[in-house]
């Protein structure tokens, strides 16, 4: 199997994630889109590590996972707090910083 297929998969996954973030309103679903993009990136990192025979990409993937885990913790906490105060998980309802 061509190794570049992994990169194509990563690109498709990233595009799906990005589309999810841009189009969906539910904060949880947007969050899932973000996770999908991160994992697509991880896949690309690991693939490049494999291509170059260098473990740097794999190490970076680990970093991304750790940061993503931390981000999930903080992000979910924020979403829950917003839901408690506004009774809504829609990202369009939190536009207090508009002009």
């Amino acid at each position: 199997m061509e190794i570049t297929n992994y990169l194509g998969l990563a690109a498709i996954l990233f595009a799906i994630g990005a589309t999810t973030v841009l189009l969906r309103r539910n904060a949880i679903v947007v969050f899932m889109g973000v996770e999908l993009m991160l994992n697509a990136t991880n896949l690309a990192f690991v693939t490049f590590a494999r291509i170059h025979g260098d473990v740097t990409g794999q190490v970076l993937a680990f970093f991304v996972m750790v940061v993503a885990a931390a981000e999930v913790v903080v992000g979910l906490a924020i979403i829950i707090t917003i839901f408690r105060s506004r009774r809504s998980a829609s990202v369009d309802d939190v536009n207090l910083l508009n002009s």
């Binding site: 973030v21 536009n95 910083l97 508009n98 002009s99």
Partner: peptide
């Protein structure tokens, strides 16, 4: 320029993209 600051996270994300 302030008009771009519409408070919708999605539009910020689109800008970044």
């Amino acid at each position: 320029l302030r008009r771009f600051q519409n408070g919708y996270v999605r539009s910020y994300a689109a800008t970044m993209l």
